[in-house]
């Protein structure tokens, strides 16, 4: 008797769980309408898709991926659900390995940032594949870098900072080791001929890096945060951090940082480095499969939600796909390999 009641208790509990869960999200099943007329007809996924994220929930590209997923669902861009799956670890290596192993399967796409290059190039022992081995889908935005200092700092321009950095090692912080922030600091070092920065790798994301600068934690003096990461400290009253210059070719013309000088104009000639918010898919997809994903993410790019989000976060909107994106992937490989070589990371 007892056993039977036990079964009933468990079964009821589980069915309740299942029912609660089932109510939260209804898979969108209507077919895609965004496929545009062109030579190749897009091949649609036939089962739920895994949208692989190389960071933990809440970190780095996770936010971007979840916004994209929200848009894909809202606009019903995919006939099958697109489920975000976090595969954190090894600065992205765990996620890259996972997607690499899904050769020829269009049900795996992943959001990438510069770690896609830095990790693939510098991880030891070497990973058995290159950035070019994955199927390139599209780049959705460039997230610029600014050079930030604490509001109390005496430096007004990049030139002031570099003059000081030639005298003594400045204390800098950024996300990860040998990742995009350190790459940029090592490039500054290389281009301007300063002493090596005491670079403190932070593993809690860019927002945390900006906070460390705001609180001058452990004496930190300079960061290269993205505008959205620095914004809360910039808008605080009284102001806590300020950007000296931007590593973009031109000054921003709109938004909270309109008119910010370029670093190039202040004697720091770097204007080709930014965080790439891009989409890659498993290696070896057919042209028809690739086209499906290019269409989906073009749909995301064209949505009002994405435009609003980009404006809020001061992103450079820049949709690149096809051969141009392939070229971009190769160019970035070159940039990162070069800086890795100069610092002996290979």
């Amino acid at each position: 008797m007892l056993s039977r009641r036990g079964v009933a208790v468990l079964a009821t509990a589980l069915i309740t769980l299942a029912a609660c869960g089932g109510g939260t999200a209804t898979p969108s099943a209507s077919p895609s309408t965004s496929a545009s007329a062109s030579a190749v007809t897009a091949e649609k996924p036939t089962r739920p898709v895994e949208f692989v994220i190389s960071t933990a929930p809440g970190g780095g590209s996770d936010t971007y991926a979840r916004i994209m997923q929200g848009v894909i669902e809202k606009l019903k861009l995919s006939p099958q659900p697109v489920n975000p799956v976090n595969k954190p670890g090894g600065s992205g290596a765990v996620a890259f390995q996972y997607v690499f192993e899904k050769k020829g399967d269009m049900h795996y796409v992943m959001i990438t940032l510069n770690s896609f290059w830095t990790t693939l190039i510098t991880t030891k022992p070497a990973l058995p594949y290159k950035p070019e081995d994955f199927t390139p889908i599209a780049n959705l935005a460039n997230d610029p870098f600014f050079l930030w200092v604490n509001e109390k700092s005496p430096w007004k321009t990049a030139g002031d900072l570099i003059a000081e950095a030639k005298n003594r090692p400045l204390i800098a912080t950024g996300t990860g080791s040998k990742q995009e922030d350190e790459v940029l600091f090592r490039r500054i070092q290389d281009v301007a001929g300063t002493k090596a920065f005491n670079y403190v790798p932070d593993d809690q994301g860019g927002g945390h890096v900006a906070t460390a600068l705001r609180g001058q934690q452990a004496g930190i003096e300079v960061t290269v945060n993205n505008p959205s990461e620095g914004l809360p400290g910039y808008q605080a009253t009284p102001r806590e951090i300020r950007p000296l210059c931007t590593f973009q070719p031109q000054s921003p013309t709109t938004g909270p940082f309109a008119g910010l000088a370029t670093c190039k104009s202040q004697g720091l000639p770097i204007d080709d480095y930014y965080v790439v918010r891009a989409i890659m898919a498993a290696p070896g997809l057919s042209a028809a499969q690739q086209k499906f994903w290019v269409d989906v993410f073009k749909g995301v790019y064209d949505s009002q939600e994405w435009k609003d989000f980009a404006a809020k976060n001061v992103l450079d909107l820049n949709f690149v796909s096809g051969d141009a994106f392939k070229k971009l992937v190769q160019d970035l490989t070159k940039v990162h390999t070069d800086i890795a070589q100069k610092n002996g990371w290979l």
Partner: peptide
């Protein structure tokens, strides 16, 4: 047999369908 079918079915419903956790 019933438990062997119901338990995975309930987990499938909660994880794959409800919360979309593969």
């Amino acid at each position: 047999g019933a438990a062997a079918v119901l338990l995975p079915a309930a987990i499938y419903a909660a994880f794959e369908l409800g919360f979309r956790v593969p």
